[in-house]
């Protein structure tokens, strides 16, 4: 049923797009028709695939590093009071700097290769994961903590068996946000300076007025981002079956 709905919406949007092209008769370098984009997608598939694999690698590496660092930071914040006093203001202040403004610096420091894009994605992923997980760790039901205390649980045991599992739903929301912003980090990094990747391809296609190729790259990027998001969402539901949102909807 959901699939049917998605297909209907996609088809409707394609028809609307086609109608817009017919009615306004815009030149193809402003807005190519869906058929033209489809044809380019098929013809240039090997090229698109090559650049997509670079961007995918940047996103996945950034996601891995960002989630890892974010998790560690949240655990440190939740368990060490002294560290929290120093680290928390620093973290919040760091978010006032637009990450995109750092992109040229990252390219300058880390070069045109993959490293600067991975760093960019890591930076953009780090904060939502830290914030969401730390928030979850802080909001453990006081009743559970009191119970664990009367049972003689050590601080570590309470963190491991109560606070962390209880914070996993918050962690997965952070992960969902991170997954949604990860492609942005990678592509912005590619726009600032790169030798490969879908962002690089789009920038070049734009300069040569190959708008159909730009659209094809955009479609591939969207498909990748959606696939990643649903994969994370699916995994979250599978691993946390006790969440109310994991129950099948009636």
């Amino acid at each position: 049923m959901g699939l049917l709905r998605a297909a209907t919406v996609t088809l409707g949007l394609l028809l609307l797009w086609q109608a817009l092209v017919w009615v306004t008769a815009v030149p193809p370098f402003i807005l190519p028709s869906p058929q033209a984009v489809g044809a380019t997608l098929v013809q240039r598939w090997p090229l698109l695939l090559g650049h997509a694999s670079v961007t995918a690698a940047e996103i996945l590496l950034g996601l891995l590093l960002g989630v890892l660092l974010g998790t560690i930071a949240a655990l440190l914040l939740a368990s060490a009071t002294v560290l929290r006093r120093w680290l928390l203001p620093l973290l919040v202040a760091s978010q006032a700097i637009p990450v995109f403004a750092l992109a040229p610096l990252l390219v300058l420091w880390l070069g045109y290769g993959m490293a600067s894009k991975v760093a960019m994605a890591t930076l953009i992923i780090f904060f939502p994961v830290t914030a969401a997980f730390y928030d979850g760790l802080r909001r453990t039901d006081p009743g559970w903590l009191a119970l664990a205390q009367t049972m003689g649980g050590t601080r570590y045991a309470i963190l491991r068996h109560i606070a962390i599992p209880a914070a996993l739903p918050a962690f997965t929301s952070g992960l969902r946000v991170a997954t949604a912003v990860a492609p942005i980090g990678a592509v912005v990094g590619e726009w600032v300076g790169s030798s490969a990747g879908l962002g690089h391809l789009m920038l070049n296609a734009n300069a040569r007025m190959q708008t159909d190729l730009m659209f094809a790259a955009l479609l591939v990027l969207t498909a990748m981002a959606l696939l990643l998001y649903y994969a994370v969402d699916f995994l979250g539901r599978r691993l946390l079956p006790w969440l109310p949102e994991s129950q099948p909807r009636s």
């Binding site: 009743g143 559970w144 009367t150 003689g152 045991a157 309470i158 068996h161 599992p165």
Partner: peptide, 29 residues
């Protein structure tokens, strides 16, 4: 260390099954 406490809320951990909830104290210790 000689006290057990029971509250108005059941305070069961939703990610553990019934028997693991019963033995939560051992898990924590």
């Amino acid at each position: 260390g000689r006290v057990a406490w029971m509250a108005q809320q059941d305070l069961l951990l939703p990610w553990l099954n019934v028997q693991d909830n019963v033995t939560l104290g051992d898990r924590l210790r």
